[in-house]
Nucleic acid binder design. Structure first.
Lengths: 130, 130
DNA sequence: GCCTCTGTTCTATTACTTGTATAACAGATA
DNA sequence: TATCTGTTATACAAGTAATAGAACAGAGGC
């Protein structure tokens, strides 16, 4: 699993890990059932403390994306083939979408810009899954 | 200007203010040239310290959304009619969109769900501007 | 001139977050 | 037994979030 983070970014490392894992699941480079590296291993690979990785995995577990076994480590639990979202997810997600789209609109991206880029991103996800 | 924040939320207050102002500009309830309440006034209205409001305004200023005069206070500087986005904005924005869409995809929202909700939000922005 | 409004700056405090660090524990496996 | 896994606990340094009080400078009204 390729996973690059930016130590100089203002986004917390654990959140960058969460985001990259989520994107890997969306593109299909990680699928339900696939194992993630152990917290200690990924910590070494990224040159960071394993507690930071552990926090990222814990976030993903709370979100229902991965499952964590004491024996076999972290395993992807959910991907786009796992059925419809849990109750309440879609509306909470849309509230965050609203803020992001407001930002785009205010800065001058048109409706077509926004929808076009959304389609591009989704095409990218589906394209890599083929 | 209606502006509601949630003091119990895990999102920082100053960011909630930023988000609400941005959404108000997107819907047209705030337009370029419109004044924002003074930091002290909004602080009183929301029951928070004016330094917190000041931080939110400073964020919006850094993002180019408002202009701040020592005399006349904060004024909206940019809205959807102010032309195309600054260089680099669109790509940085799309990177954040990618993470948000990855989250939706992983949790089982389909392509049509995502695009439909995006259109709904954008329709909401344009609808309120009429 | 005086008063009041505006943002700005400074210092300070409290509480929480982020990341690192070390250590120890428990379960599974070779 | 030795080694791998996640888990838990504690601690520390640095930064962030929010509050608070005080003071300054510019602009406007009376």
């Amino acid at each position: 699993m390729l996973l690059t983070i930016d130590l100089d970014s203002d986004t917390p490392i654990y959140q960058q890990i969460r985001d990259r894992v989520l994107e890997a699941v969306a593109t299909g480079s990680l699928r339900a059932g696939d194992p993630l590296p152990s917290t200690r291993q990924l910590g070494v690979d990224l040159g960071i403390n394993f507690h930071t990785v552990s926090k990222a995995y814990d976030l993903l577990r709370q979100e229902g994306v991965i499952r964590i076994n004491r024996k076999s480590g972290a395993v992807v639990r959910r991907d786009h083939t796992s059925g419809p979202p849990d109750a309440g997810f879609a509306d909470a997600w849309q509230a965050r979408l609203r803020t992001l789209l407001a930002e785009a609109t205010t800065h001058g991206l048109t409706r077509d810009d926004v929808l076009g880029r959304s389609q591009d991103v989704l095409d990218g996800f589906e394209g890599e899954r083929s």
